[in-house]
Amino acid sequence: MRPVIKTDKLTKRFGAFVAANELTFEVEKGEIFGFLGANGAGKTTAMRMLCGLLMPSSGKATIAGFDVYTQTDQIKRRIGYMSQKFSLYDDLTVTENIRFYGGIYGMEIKEIKAKTLELLAELQLEKEAKTLVRDLPLGWKQKLAFSVSLVHSPDIVFLDEPTGGVDPVTRRQFWDLIYHAADKGVTVFVTTHYMDEAEYCNRVSIMVDGVIAALDSPAKLKKKYGYDNIEDVFYELARKAKRSE
């Protein structure tokens, strides 16, 4: 199978500082790929390069077969993105947000309407359809933001710490949504600080000081480093970090 994300020595420098150093990895279609690392390890930088928000300094990368340097428009049509910062419009209602994002991805109004009903049902937000997003609880907002990032049926969705500040029950529900999306063939690229979430991933990579220190399935990583949970593997690797925030 052809990988959906393929990078080869992808690097980003800010002056003398190398935020992401020669990242090389592949992600398969429908895979849930966990992207772990301490604060400042370079996760967000890497993700922003893959989404076309940041110009790489060197190296190669393709997303859904398109080049990150030259084919950003094609890439953008095929990816969804949910940033660390909550990014729906507070002063628009749930429906209006879905309509707006669907609209700027070039969907037809009919299509948007059908999709809206589908998403509202999936999120059980039918009653809140006309509520302003600012009046929703944080957990609901995050779930809505995730669904909105999928509104145009992308091949890949990038999630940057999607569950930050969310309660455990909602986090669990959030991961149900992720699984649901992956079942439908969407590739999920997710960064997180919750190690229990890392266990839900098909494969995880652990970034330390801008480089990928380990990459494998959670089970194999645990076996390799001789721990019975990912948290300990993470500590073992992250402890070696020299740079801090």
């Binding site: 928000l53 049509r77 419009y89 994002y101 991805y105």
Partner: peptide, 13 residues
């Protein structure tokens, strides 16, 4: 400031 511009920037607009 609100970060929504990021979300706009990942769209093909």
């Amino acid at each position: 400031e609100s970060g929504t511009i990021e979300q706009i920037n990942v769209t093909p607009i």
